[in-house]
Design a protein around this nucleic acid. Structure first.
Length: 254
DNA sequence: ATGTCAGGGGGGCCCTGA
């Protein structure tokens, strides 16, 4: 089985690329972030025509998440129960016995901003939610755009980025707290090429210069970890015309 | 190089967010 995550930065723009990618990469489940669509605008019929089931949870202009799957997702939860939030950031469902949590973590903007305060509160709530989900669903994947580079080797210029958003000690402590639930960073279960990123800024020719961050992750529960066969960042869609700034990441389960 | 995108309001550019 394969499960994937992709921040598409507007599904209205990227729908053809997502359908092309799914055709070439027939995963069992795919979580999307930054769909930027209200639910009435979600292209449900386009996915269904291609043989996919969809669950979605969006809003106007910002955020928005979806869970695309071959088999229907069950026990779907939107956002974090008990955490009041006008922002649509989380969608959870069970696909073929795997609890899939797809999340668009807050960006945080800057460590001294209100948005960073929100990010910290959201991360606290997410950790509690994932801990509770693990109690009832031992086979669990937490996937998405974390907006956290967990380690200096996940940053193209760790000196320049030291203490900057995505790289602060507070954000990395939150990532570590998720690891201690426990969950494992599936990408690091395997030998990976150095300078492996999942996001490159649109500016500064960053993709051409391979200046990026690894901020999109797939974390697996302890029960699933022995079944993880590979974790791959697929850079190919970043070479498309009008690409998302993020690459999809997928994990294979045996 | 703050050098790019995307969405939206409101008009045909400018703002926010990333």
């Amino acid at each position: 089985m394969k499960f994937a995550t992709w921040n598409v930065n507007s599904l209205a723009v990227r729908l053809p690329q997502v359908l092309d990618w799914l055709a070439a990469n027939p995963v069992d489940g795919l979580v999307l972030q930054e769909t930027k669509l209200t639910d009435d605008k979600f292209p449900q019929a386009d996915f269904e025509a291609a043989g996919w089931q969809v669950q979605f949870f969006g809003q106007k202009t910002y955020n928005g998440v979806a869970l695309i799957s071959r088999s229907p997702a069950t026990d779907v939860v939107k956002n974090i129960p008990g955490f009041e939030d006008p922002q649509a950031r989380v969608i959870t469902g069970t696909v073929d016995g795997v609890r899939c949590i797809g999340a668009y973590f807050p960006n945080g903007q800057a460590p001294d901003s209100d948005k960073f305060v929100y990010k910290m509160a959201w991360l606290d709530a997410l950790r509690s939610f994932v801990a509770a989900e693990l109690q009832t669903h031992p086979n669990l994947l937490l996937m998405g755009d974390f907006n956290i580079a967990p380690d200096d080797r996940d940053v193209y210029d760790p000196v320049a980025w030291a203490g900057q958003i995505h790289c602060t000690p507070q954000e990395r402590a939150h990532f570590q707290a998720l690891i201690e639930l426990p969950l494992c960073d599936t990408f690091r279960l395997f030998e990976q090429a150095p300078k492996s990123w999942s996001w490159w800024d649109y500016r500064n020719l960053a993709f051409r210069k391979n200046q990026g961050l690894r901020i999109d992750h797939i974390l697996a529960s302890a029960a699933l970890q022995p079944r993880v066969k590979s974790c791959v960042i697929d850079r190919a869609p970043r070479k498309n015309e009008r690409p998302s700034d993020h690459a999809p990441v997928w994990v294979e389960l045996g």
